[in-house]
Design a protein around this nucleic acid. Structure first.
Lengths: 245, 245
DNA sequence: AATACATTGTGTGTTAGCGCACAGAACGAT
DNA sequence: ATCGTTCTGTGCGCTAACACACAATGTATT
């Protein structure tokens, strides 16, 4: 990915941005920019991918699909992370589906180069492992939230997680799609979204939700969001790469 | 841990058993046997541990504790794994509590030695990373199961996961404790356990549950159990260490 | 402008699980 | 043997979320 503009774009991905200059320069040589459309399936359960993806503006959703077709999201990957941890964790495949939840850009890196760099044991490896731990925290909190919290709260959590990974306040997303992520009924999402709308926190327009009052959302959300957020900051936040170099 | 008998015992842990002879010999030098009582707290949320643990007969439960005291289990670690993945993943701490769910034995290994061995990049590292992926699969499935399945089904899943990691058919465990793990009411567990008992699948005695009909349990469980089980076998099952040596 | 389609809004009845309250049963200590 | 404690069993009202049905509104197509 030679063009200078791309190098700047690559830094929008937090994992890449945290690399020391030398590693960044070496690794960006293997990166290729891709544009991802909403709904694109990055991999199905059991698929072996030939690339990992570093999102910059795109957001991916990790979904589990039950035998009866019911779905539930286990995690969200945006410019804070990487899609395809199973490739360096050694399992090669995973039991979930990854789809593009918000259209945008990402950089792909072929598996072979990725594994070669990972094996070097440098900051690249360290960042990927730390990210994987953050992902574990996110998935864990999803489990807890699914168990103990209401649809209202979970919608807030989901909106905040998405909003964090997005440049805009407008989430292009139908209630039906959100219901698939949360693993609840579409009507349940409509109802919860209405409640937030009457409080002036979001605006519901056909096919999209706009965040009007971010603070209001943060007030309405359950502790799960903050726990995950704090853990991401702790593990991957500014200064991390220096702290344990 | 010199005594010969301990070496045999160490092989009861699947991760250790999968190591090539040379690595096994080197690593067992760092292992110390410990006996763990039911209910012992291995670490609290945010605690930095000085050891990782390889259970042989003990079982640990990873619990998240909400601000209001409500709890929910995110995963179970037995002789198939290791407690303390956060130590080699780089985060040092985690947001959950680990408690001993079933009393028994484990081997502890000090963090320093563990990290040194991990960094060597041998089979030890590979097995730990593969195990971590399996754990991710388990946590993910917990999230999905919490969302989409009934208490009845979840109790079956939980009983099977525990039974798998145990030598005996008798689980020393009150309904109250199980309810803390599943994040449901104690009465809900009592009810679900009664249903299984009337079908002759388990026997409920004060303070313990005995599995009478393992096949019956497997028939009653949701797909979640099988998915996780298959993933553990795929990632860590017999022949794995040879397959990618 | 008319039509088809996708999305959202709303109502009705049902159910799983909750919170609370308390009774009975098993166990442990003195 | 008795007492206190820890478990398990049971009942009752309540609520969140479900399943299903269908109306109302946008948006795209022609």
């Amino acid at each position: 990915m030679p063009p200078e503009s791309n190098l700047q774009l690559a830094k929008k991905n937090h994992l890449l941005a945290a690399l020391p200059a030398e590693e960044f320069d070496r690794i960006t040589k293997f990166l290729e920019p891709v544009t991802l459309k909403l709904g694109k399936v990055m991999h199905e359960s059991g698929d072996k991918m030939s690339y990992v993806y570093f999102p910059t503006t795109a957001i991916m959703s990790l979904l589990y699909i039950m035998e009866n077709g019911a779905t539930a999201e286990i995690g969200i990957v945006g410019n804070d992370g990487i899609l395809g941890v199973e490739l360096f964790m050694g399992g090669e495949t995973t039991t979930n589906r990854a789809i593009v939840q918000s259209a945008g850009e990402a950089f792909k890196m072929d598996t072979k180069s990725m594994k070669a760099e990972f094996t070097l044991g440098g900051m690249f490896q360290k960042m990927l492992l730390r990210y994987t731990q953050a992902l574990i925290a996110q998935i864990s909190q999803t489990a807890v939230c699914n168990r103990l919290h209401s649809v209202d709260q979970q919608l807030c959590r989901w909106l905040l997680l998405s909003h964090d990974r997005l440049d805009s306040d407008k989430l292009v997303m139908t209630h039906d799609l959100i219901s698939n992520m949360l693993g609840v009924r579409r009507e349940g999402v409509t109802l919860a979204a209405q409640k937030l709308a009457t409080r002036g926190i979001i605006k519901n327009i056909r096919g999209s939700i706009t965040v009007l009052n971010r603070i209001g959302l943060e007030d309405a959300v359950c502790e799960c969001y903050n726990v995950v957020n704090a853990e991401y900051k702790r593990l991957l936040g500014p200064g991390v790469s220096r702290a344990f170099a």
